[in-house]
Nucleic acid binder design. Structure first.
Lengths: 351, 351
DNA sequence: CTGAAAGCGCTAACAG
DNA sequence: CTGTTAGCGCTTTCAG
C-alpha cells in the first residue's frame, strides 16, 4: 500500500543532497568532512521515518550483497542441518546472511542454483558439491567469487577446502572392530564416486588388507528411497550370514541399516558389531548404544566461515589456497563391543 | 574476470533493439507480433553466448523476485528441516526459490530478517513466527506481500494459516495413556506462550480433568541448553516419584527426556509410559520403541506452498483467509503400553 | 514489428 | 562540505 520511502524523498525532506545522505549512511561522513550536526540531523530523521535503503538497488550498484550461499546435499540430513545452523549463526554475527539450498546431488539443479545465486550477486559460496560441477565452480572462482568446498573435493577445482580425514576414520573404526574380535566386517556404503565416499572405502579396505580379512562391501544406489534401501540391506545381510560386524558409510545408511537389522531379528547373527559414520542424537539411547564416527561439526563450521570471511576481506590478494583436514572422533559405545579383544596390536595410527 | 554480457551487448551483436529482445525473452513475442524467424535468431544467439538476464536488475524493476522466504525456529530441528525440504522441493517445481533462515524464536533477529527480506523483494513469506512479531507481519501483509503462517498462530495477525490440532493431539495421547492404565501422567513442556504450546497444554489438562487425575507439569525454559534441560528433567523425575508416564511437548524435549531417564536408570520407575510430540526416525528402533504424535509433514508442506502460490497468483483479489487445521496421528509403539487397559471407555473423539 | 527513453533506488566520480 | 549526474541491467510505455 504505502510507497516505500527512497533516498531521494529523504533528500527533499531534509533539503540536503542525496550524495550527502548516502555518504552519511555509509559511514563515510568523517572522511567526507560532513558536519557532525548535519550527520545527527540526518540520522535522526532516517530513524523517525524508518527509512531503510533498498539493498537490491545497492547490490545492483555495488555488486555486493552481504549474502552467502550455502549449498548442501540435503538440508534435512542432520549433519548438514546442524552445520548449516552453525554457519548461519556465525555468518550472521559478521553481518552476513545465509541463503541455503539442497542440491540433491543433482548436477542440473546445482548448476541452475549456482547461476541464479551468481546473478543475485551473492558474495561467496560454501558448497558440498555433487560430482561434475567442476566447471561451474571454476567459473565462479574466475569471476572473483570466493568459494569454499567442504565435506568433499572436486578433482578439477582448486580452492579452499574443509574436509575430514575419511580414510583414517574408517581405517581406525575397522581396526577397532578387529581389536574387538570381529572377523567379517562389512562396509555398507553408497555407489558414489564422490571423494568422501571413496576415502571411506579406501580406509576400510586398507585396514582389512592389513589384517588379511575378507571384504564384504555392499554399495547401495544413492537414488534408492528409504524403504528400498532397507530391503537391499536386509537382503545383503541374509545372503552374507558370515558377516559379524558392519561399518556404515553415512548416517542415513546406518539408520536404515538398523531398521533392516531390526526387521531381521532372529534371522541373522544376534550380536552384530556396528559402527555408524556420523554421530546422532539418539545413538547413545539405542540398545545397544551405537558406536559412531563423529565429525567435528562445530570446528568445521567455524573453519568454513572463517576461511570464507578471510577471502571476502582480501578479495584481490591472491592467497594460496588452504586445505584443512580435520580428524574425526570414534565414539565407542556398546554396539562395537565384541567377544573380546584380540591380541594383535597394530601401532600405525594415522593414514 | 570476464564481463557478464548484458541485454545491450546482445542488441548490438544482433543489430536488434533491446526492447525486442526483452519481449522475446519474456515470452511476449507473439503478443507483440515479432516474426518467428527473428525470435528464433535471437533465441539461438542467446543460447550460444550463454546469456542470462540479471535477475537483480529485473527484480529492481519489476518488484518481483521469484523468491520465497521461509522462516522457521531452527533449521536443525528435524521437524522444520524436513518440512523445509519438502517446501523447497515443491516451490522449486513452480519456479520459485527458497531462502530460509532460523529465527531462534528471537524477536530482534526475526524483525531484522523480515526487513532484510522485504528489501530484497522477496515475493512471499512462510513463517513459523516467534511471539511478538505481529506488527512486522501485518506491515508485510499491508504491503501486499503474501504471508502464510504455520505451526503456530499470532493473536493480532489475520492471514492464511496451516496448523495442527494441538489440543486434540495431546488430549488423545493422554486418553491413550489413561486407557493403558497410567494414573500419574506428567507433561514436560516449554515455558512458552506460543499458541501451539498452549494448545498442547490445554489438551493435556482437559484429558486429565475428565479423568480426575492430577496434573504434573514441568515447564522447561526455552533458552536452556541440552545439558541443563536434561538436568532439570532428571530433577523433576526424581522429585515426582509417583509419575508413571510422561507426555513430551516437543521433539527435542522428548530426546532430552529420554536421555535423562537413561541416566536415572534404577532410580525411578522402571517402566515409565512415554509419548513424544513429533515422530522421529529412530523412535521405532528404541527399546522400548517410542510412541509419538506424528505431524502430517508432507500434507502440511503441500498445503503451505499451495496456499502461498494461490495468493501469489491472485495478488489483487482479496480472498478470504484460509485457516487449515490438520490432524496428527498417534503412532502407538511399545513405550506407551501399560499394565493393561482400563475399563473406562470414553467416546468423545475430537477436541 | 521496432527503437528511444524513462525510470527502479542507490553509489560515487566529479565539479563546485 | 554539497550537489549533479551517470550509470548498474532490465522492463515497458509511447511513438513511430
Amino acid at each position: 500500500m504505502k510507497k516505500r520511502i527512497s533516498i531521494r524523498d529523504l533528500a527533499a525532506q531534509l533539503d540536503v543532497s542525496v550524495t550527502t545522505i548516502s555518504f552519511i549512511l555509509n559511514g563515510r561522513a568523517e572522511e567526507k568532512r560532513i558536519s557532525a550536526q548535519l550527520v545527527e540531523r540526518v540520522l535522526k530523521h532516517v530513524k523517525e521515518v524508518g527509512y531503510r535503503p533498498n539493498s537490491l538497488a545497492r547490490s545492483l550498484r555495488t555488486g555486493k550483497s552481504h549474502i552467502i550461499c550455502l549449498m548442501v546435499e540435503d538440508i534435512a540430513n542432520p549433519f548438514f542441518a546442524n552445520i548449516a545452523r552453525l554457519i548461519e549463526e556465525r555468518a550472521y554475527k559478521s553481518g552476513y546472511k545465509i541463503m541455503y539450498c539442497s542440491t540433491d546431488n543433482s548436477l542440473v539443479k546445482t548448476r541452475e542454483m549456482i547461476h541464479m545465486f551468481r546473478e543475485r550477486h551473492v558474495d561467496g559460496f560454501i558448497i558440498a558439491p555433487p560430482e561434475g560441477v567442476d566447471e561451474e565452480i571454476n567459473a565462479l572462482i574466475n569471476d572473483g567469487r570466493p568459494v569454499i568446498l567442504f565435506d568433499r573435493t572436486l578433482p578439477q577445482v582448486s580452492t579452499d577446502h574443509v574436509m575430514i580425514d575419511n580414510a583414517a576414520s574408517t581405517y581406525l573404526a575397522v581396526k577397532h572392530l578387529v581389536a574387538e574380535g570381529f572377523k567379517n566386517i562389512a562396509f555398507i556404503t553408497l555407489d558414489s564416486l564422490q571423494s568422501q565416499m571413496q576415502g571411506r572405502l579406501e580406509g576400510y579396505e586398507r585396514a582389512l588388507r592389513e589384517h588379511n580379512l575378507n571384504f564384504h562391501i555392499k554399495e547401495v544406489a544413492f537414488t534408492l528411497d528409504e524403504e528400498n534401501t532397507i530391503r537391499h540391506i536386509a537382503a545383503f545381510l541374509q545372503r552374507k550370514k558370515e558377516v559379524d560386524a558392519i561399518l556404515f558409510g553415512t548416517n542415513y545408511l546406518a539408520i536404515r541399516g538398523l531398521k533392516a537389522i531390526n526387521q531381521l531379528k532372529g534371522q541373522i547373527a544376534p550380536k552384530l558389531g556396528i559402527v555408524a559414520f556420523d554421530d546422532h542424537d539418539l545413538f547413545e539411547l539405542n540398545s545397544p548404544s551405537i558406536t559412531a564416527i563423529a565429525q567435528p561439526i562445530e570446528e568445521m563450521a567455524d573453519k568454513v566461515i572463517t576461511l570464507l570471511l578471510n577471502k571476502l576481506n582480501s578479495l584481490n590478494k591472491k592467497k594460496p589456497n588452504q586445505s584443512v583436514l580435520m580428524n574425526t572422533k570414534l565414539v565407542i559405545r556398546e554396539s562395537s563391543k565384541g567377544a573380546g579383544p584380540e591380541l594383535t596390536v597394530v601401532s600405525r595410527a594415522s593414514s
